[in-house]
Design a binder for these strands. Structure first.
Length: 828
RNA sequence: GCCGAAGUGGCGGAAUGGCAGACGCGACGGUCUCAAAAACCGUUGGGCUUCACGGCCCGUGUGGGUUCGACUCCCACCUUCGGCACCA
């Protein structure tokens, strides 16, 4: 834009020219620091947050889809009297940076920094009210120093521990693979068949908080997210029961199972261990050793998703060993089968084919006995074709025979406890959070291994443990930290003797579990954030982001918050009070946008062609925000036309008079107030699509009034166009600012107060109702608002269109819904 | 497979127990133009019927149910999307 063309435009009748006005206002806002959020503002605070983008390299349409409506909502809050914090940053650690490093022979830091630079520029095109002075980059040592600090706090408070856990291992590349790097059971790089391998890894005790995480009463989140988290946590009540083991040379004399059906224990006809169960190797007999080993190997190559499938035919191998069911003294065979997971319960199940479908399928396949232990009312005593559901009374259960289903579980637990065979227990599907990653591009776990002192935490004063700048990536994907001598070798903080650093890094979900806290005090060098600022800003009032994060990220950040509260770092219970999950935007072909599919629509190209405001509004207009869907650029012209019309309506001269047309003025006021009402309610409810539609209708009405030639009251017209500019401010910040200026109002539209409506002015005087006969619309009536039933009935019955259908028939009932319809029910 | 969500004109969608299709795209017809584009105006769910005004029937993934009335509530099913713990 040059000043020449700008002044020419000014002199001529002005057309909507977004490419001229948008950069102008963005530069002005930045120069004025319009979006700097002060910490000492007396207005009530509002912390609005949208999930930070991963530094993939290019800002995606999906980012705009997530952030532009979020920005509109934040702007609206600001206009309703809040001091709004709306920060932005970058999630910068992760696997793609390492892949790029291997491919381009660069350091991931270089790739990441370049992407941050580029994406920040792209984000600025959005014209959002981000306070850039608070930007955080999670791969920056200034930030990850504190991610490491969090690890140390959790360790100090007994919430971090080490244990063995399985990872995908590529035997050729000698490296750990992520789930997504395993394609059809093979390494994506070299196509070698991969298998699980056990490594010592760090965990956080999220299961300590399982019950509290089930409590969603202190937040207002969508039901489906709460439900998904509830199912993910998967609290099951039942019992731990012990089975006797008597095998020469094996130290253990029992194995414990978890079961939700201790009442079926007399129906146990076999016993199954997960192939990974630690006792498998010890109890297997010599004859079965080869078969068991082969099965364990095969199970190590199968993904958990496949193993959990109830459709897959059951497989398993007899170990040759037996356990004793203490309840009836019976000895049953011990099998291993991959439908039993080592990560759930105790990794062992009692096989009750009469009452569990998976056990039933297993017993059928391997010819194991099926003994029902409930006389279910629907069961005739014949051979079963499926496991029996709950119901009936206990049979074949010795001392417990005759116990009804309703009290069977508690009775069985009581009996087990009395006899010392087991006790009531609760188990969760949720597992402790594995945070070790055998990767370079993450925050190093601040631990030093000393021969004398074991795993010693790095002293807080030595943080950050920085990643080496000269890391060299091998094409295998092996972490360079494992062979970087300078990084590896250090001294034990306790004794000063030579020691080795932990080479694993922290899961990137750790960064995103606390980043919202860092925004409130991003430059603090002493602490992750100050207590005073935490008091002022936290928790987040409104969080928005993709539904794909409904469980993991959102559960992890809730855990962090609760742990931080218990460690005395913060004083609230939930990280985000309100949550809204927007849907995912897809390519025009309905597939996920990706370079390999060639269906990527770049937001920059849309902005260059139509301007930021048009693109923002189009994304909002596409449909319900929570749904997402394919992006089809062809409809965007409609938004551009609308903004042009809005521009024309707001800038045009309209016939006004001191003796205005009263009905036309009334109509204009009604439209203005009705629209404010609709738009206010829509933005409060994140219904951006209908918000835009309401503004379109309002714009069309303004143009209709102008072209009708009616002379309207000058104040009413001014109120209408000023309201239009104010309501455009959240979705379309640039055109709103320009129109506001052209209307002669003081800078800036974004610091104005949101318009309010009068319910009286918004109300319709007259409504049209449907008149139905037996539910079919036969006529329509114009009635005064809230007309009494008598009026409606009288006029409805008088209509010839109606009498045609009720003539000669008996009116049995009349239903009147004021302002909606009159339904006449006739018979005969 | 399990958990969560969604299916409405040619397309995106609106209406969450009360007139299905708001708003927009596209298409068709028109105005302007030498022409085209842009802009503007009109029509636009399907079928039958009427010279016309109009009228009638069908229609919200499929099948059943509740109700005076169902896109909306209930049951079963189908399809698509998100998540399933090392992609972020």
């Amino acid at each position: 834009m040059t000043t020449d063309t700008a002044s020419e435009r000014r002199a001529q009748p002005q057309r909507y020219d977004p490419l001229a006005i948008e950069p102008k206002w963005r530069a002005r806002w930045e120069a004025d620091d319009l979006y700097r959020t002060p910490d000492d503002d007396p207005r009530p605070k509002w912390y609005a947050l949208t999930m930070l983008p991963y530094t993939s390299g290019d800002l995606h349409i999906g980012h705009w889809f997530a952030m532009a409506p979020s920005d509109a909502a934040a702007r609206y809050k600001r206009m309703t009297g809040y001091n709004v914090l709306f920060p932005m940053g970058f999630d910068a650690f992760g696997l793609p940076a390492e892949n790029a490093a291997i491919k381009n022979k660069t350091h991931p830091a270089e790739w990441t920094a370049k992407n941050v630079e580029h994406m920040r520029g792209q984000l600025k095109l959005m014209g959002a009210m981000f306070d850039w002075s608070r930007e955080v980059v999670t791969a920056d040592p200034e930030f990850y120093k504190w991610t490491q600090w969090w690890f140390l706090q959790l360790l100090k408070h007994g919430l971090a521990y080490k244990k063995k856990a399985a990872v995908w291992w590529c035997p050729k590349d000698q490296t750990v693979l992520a789930n997504e790097q395993v394609v059809d059971g093979k390494c994506e790089r070299c196509e070698t068949v991969v298998a699980k391998r056990e490594l010592e890894q760090w965990f956080f005790r999220i299961t300590n908080y399982a019950d509290e995480l089930l409590d969603t009463s202190k937040m207002q989140w969508p039901d489906q997210v709460n439900l998904m988290q509830r199912n993910w946590i998967g609290r099951s009540t039942g019992a731990h029961l012990t089975f006797g083991l008597d095998i020469p040379g094996v130290a253990e004399d029992e194995i414990t199972v978890f079961t939700t059906r201790p009442d079926t224990v007399f129906g146990v006809s076999f016993f199954v261990l997960a192939p990974e169960h630690p006792l498998v190797a010890q109890i297997t007999t010599a004859e079965q050793r080869e078969a068991v080993r082969a099965y364990v190997d095969a199970a190590g190559k199968t993904s958990e998703i496949d193993r959990m499938s109830t459709e897959r035919e059951k497989t398993g191998v007899f170990t040759g060993a037996y356990v004793t069911n203490k309840f009836n003294g019976q000895k049953v065979q011990v099998w291993i089968a991959d439908y039993v997971l080592a990560t759930y319960g105790t990794g062992a199940v009692m096989g009750v084919p009469g009452h569990d479908q998976r056990d039933f399928d297993f017993a059928k396949k391997f010819g194991l006995p099926i003994v029902p232990v409930f006389q279910h009312p629907d069961w005739d005593g014949g051979e079963l074709t499926a496991a029996l559901p709950h119901g009936g009374v206990m049979i074949n259960s010795g001392p417990l025979d005759g116990t009804p289903d309703e009290v069977a579980v508690e009775t069985a637990i009581k009996y087990a406890e009395e006899k010392g065979y087991g006790k009531g227990a609760v188990t969760y599907r949720l597992r402790d959070w594995l945070i070790s990653r055998q990767r370079m591009w993450g925050a190093p776990i601040p631990i030093i291994y000393c021969d004398d002192h074991g795993a010693v935490p790095v002293p807080e004063s030595d943080l950050p443990v920085e990643l080496p700048a000269d890391a060299e990536f091998r094409p295998t994907g092996e972490s360079p930290l494992t062979y970087h001598e300078g990084f590896l070798n250090t001294k034990c903080p306790t004794c000063g003797k030579p020691a080795k650093r932990e080479t694993d890094t922290l899961d990137t979900f750790m960064c995103s579990s606390w980043y919202q806290m860092r925004y409130i005090d991003p430059h603090n060098g002493e602490r992750p954030f100050s207590r005073e600022l935490a008091q002022k800003w936290l928790p987040v009032d409104q969080y928005t982001g993709g539904a794909e994060h409904a469980v993991m990220h959102l559960l992890y950040t809730r855990f962090f918050t609760k742990a931080a509260r218990d460690m005395g770092i913060i004083e609230y219970d939930e990280p985000m009070v309100r949550l809204f999950n927007q849907g995912q935007i897809l390519g025009p072909d309905g597939q996920r946008m990706s370079k390999s599919r060639g269906n990527v629509v770049a937001p920059d190209s849309q902005v260059e062609r139509w301007g930021t405001d048009t693109f923002r509004a189009y994304l909002m207009f596409l449909g319900p925000w929570e749904q997402g869907g394919p992006y089809d650029a062809s409809g965007i012209t409609g938004i551009y036309r609308w903004l042009s019309r809005a521009w024309n309506a707001a800038t045009a001269d309209v016939p006004t008079a001191s003796q205005p047309d009263v009905p036309a003025t009334r109509e204009l006021r009604r439209w203005t107030h009705k629209t404010i009402k609709r738009v206010t309610e829509d933005i409060e409810g994140f219904r951006f699509n209908t918000l835009i539609a309401a503004l379109m209708e309002f714009t069309n009405e303004l143009i209709r009034i102008r072209e009708s030639g009616a002379t309207v009251d000058a104040d009413a017209w001014r109120e209408a166009v000023e309201s239009l500019a104010l309501m455009l401010a959240p979705p379309c910040p640039h055109i709103a600012e320009e129109l506001w200026e052209q209307l002669g109002k003081p800078y800036s539209v974004h610091t104005q107060t949101w318009p309010t409506y009068s319910a009286d002015l918004a109300r319709d005087d007259e409504v049209e109702i449907a008149v139905q006969v037996n539910g079919k619309v036969r006529d329509r009536l114009k009635l005064p608002l809230d007309a009494p039933e008598d009026t409606a009935r009288e006029q409805g019955m008088a209509s010839t269109a109606v009498t045609q259908h009720i003539e000669g028939k008996e009116v049995v009932r009349v239903i009147y819904v004021p302002n909606r319809l009159l339904n006449i029910i006739v018979k005969g």
